[in-house]
């Protein structure tokens, strides 16, 4: 790891002031992605800004129609939260499937979203539920947040403070996981709410995306049979040593069907 200067700001304003100094100034949340990247010298920040002491960045608040989760809330806290389990059980279950329990004890919602790994789980929930990403500057709808491979709508120095999840009528997440890393080879999040049906796919392509043909089919009738016949095109999907594009395309339909089954349980 290359040397860097370490900062531990006590509030969001100080963190943002430091982060705005340049692209070499990196925010540190749980470190489960960033510290690894720094060890491999894939990332060599001049300054690391540890968000660990900013208390108001973590916590979970639920009202009838929304669940708000602070950016520094650990995956384990979302997994075990009675409020999340009650309002959006699919979200708690998704958090409980991330990596392993040690990773979940450190990793955070904000870090996972800012990182936008193509195989990460949280992006599927955020896009699938139509959540809103709240930063120090603005509110970004999920549909405008995920821009591409490890790319988001966040500007340099912009900090995620929380995410607001609308409570759906029903939802479920099903992932076909990589046995070694537990990242998604393909993960599908399905949600039905008063505003319609959303289907978000992670792991399959360079970035999480909505499967609109499946959304249409499910809007007509919310049942596993509705998606069973909807094919995902393989072009543009990832091919790597874990799975080829054709296989991933096939898995999108299988996982979507299972997700709908689970949502109806």
């Amino acid at each position: 790891m290359h040397p860097f200067i370490y900062h531990r700001p006590a509030n969001v304003n100080d963190a943002v002031t430091l982060a705005a100094k340049g692209p070499d100034h990196k925010l540190l949340a749980g470190g489960q992605s960033l510290v690894q990247a720094m060890k491999l010298r894939l990332s060599s920040p001049s300054d690391v800004i540890d968000l660990g002491s900013i208390k108001d960045l973590s916590g979970i608040k639920a009202s009838g129609s929304e669940v708000t989760i602070g950016a520094m809330t650990r995956h384990a806290e979302v997994e075990k939260s009675p409020e999340v389990r009650k309002a959006i059980p699919a979200l708690a279950a998704l958090a409980g499937q991330i990596g392993d329990r040690q990773v979940r004890a450190m990793g955070t919602l904000g870090g996972a979203l800012a990182n936008n790994d193509p195989a990460a789980d949280y992006p599927a929930a955020v896009l699938g539920l139509g959540a809103t990403i709240v930063t120090n500057k603005r509110r970004i709808p999920a549909d405008e947040f995920f821009k591409g491979l490890f790319e988001t709508a966040l500007a340099q120095g912009e900090l995620i403070t929380s995410v607001v999840f609308p409570v759906p009528k029903r939802a479920a997440y099903t992932k076909f996981k990589n046995q070694a890393s537990r990242f998604a080879i393909v993960g599908v999040f399905v949600a039905e709410s008063s505003s319609g049906v959303r289907v978000a796919v992670t792991g399959a392509g360079p970035c999480v995306f909505r499967q609109k043909d499946m959304e249409k089919a499910l809007a007509a009738k919310f049942s596993p049979e509705s998606v069973a016949g909807v094919k995902q095109a393989a072009s543009g999907l990832n091919s790597d040593l874990h799975a080829g594009a054709e296989y991933r395309a096939h898995l999108v339909t299988v996982m979507a069907k299972r997700a709908v089954e689970n949502a109806l349980k």
Binding site: G31, Q32, V35, G52, A76, R101, Q102, A105
Partner: peptide, 18 residues
């Protein structure tokens, strides 16, 4: 164990344990 939770000490900075 950090504050009662199992974590991987190779994947965090010592400063994160302040």
């Amino acid at each position: 164990m950090m504050n009662g939770r199992a974590v991987k000490s190779c994947s965090m900075l010592a400063m994160q344990a302040e």
